[in-house]
């Protein structure tokens, strides 16, 4: 790490329209940058493709949660009624599985939902009260009506002046540096 970069998080540029940001993100990727991130007030269509994002793992985590809840829910009822406290009601089967289905179903939904939400938050690294990007001037607009892209200083290709010029070349407004603290 070069000393003067240590307090720079990256260079940020601003766009007015989502299509402009999608275009810019494609160009940035094509220029060879790897560590950059877009910030938008709502999910923008075409963004994952423009940034060549990896497949996300939320569905897999949700599936795991659902399986855990379903198998756990049924397994617990089975264990409670067959092993832990068996009650013989006129010789009827202890594993009366049709009666266990409602609770099994609810547990499947409950665990899948909990895993989906907390899995999503965990993969996103949230909650995270502070992040260097919040130091960016005008970044409060990212939750209203402006579309930002930030190329991070840790990228090998990053060069403060050149990256800034590159962003300006993509018609970004208010190109400025973002400090780490």
């Amino acid at each position: 790490m070069i000393a003067h970069r240590s307090h720079i998080y990256g260079v940020i540029g601003e766009f007015e329209k989502p299509e402009q940001l999608v275009h810019a993100a494609t160009k940035i990727r094509e220029a060879g940058y790897r560590y950059y991130e877009c910030y938008t007030p709502f999910p923008v269509e075409g963004m994952p493709e423009a940034m060549a994002m990896r497949r996300n793992d939320v569905p897999l985590i949700t599936l795991f949660g659902g399986l855990l809840g379903g198998l756990g829910g049924f397994g617990f009822q089975y264990w409670a009624n067959v092993y832990s406290y068996p009650i013989n009601v006129a010789g009827r089967p202890l594993n009366s599985w049709p009666a266990f289905i409602p609770v099994t179903f609810e547990m499947t939904i409950l665990f899948a939902s909990l895993f989906a939400v907390f899995g999503m938050l965990a993969l996103n690294g949230l909650p995270q009260p502070h992040h260097p990007i919040f130091n960016a001037h005008r970044f409060t607009h990212a939750s209203t009506d402006r579309f930002f892209v930030c190329i991070q200083a840790r990228d090998k290709k990053f060069h403060l002046a050149e990256t800034a010029r590159f962003l300006q070349g993509l018609a970004a407004h208010h190109v400025s540096e973002v400090h780490d603290d």
Binding site: Y39, M53, V58, P59, T62, N124, H130
Partner: peptide, 15 residues
Amino acid sequence: GWRGSARHWQRYQSA
């Protein structure tokens, strides 16, 4: 600490 990052949005939409 939501910051509207595009990668976050992708997982968010999926969840």
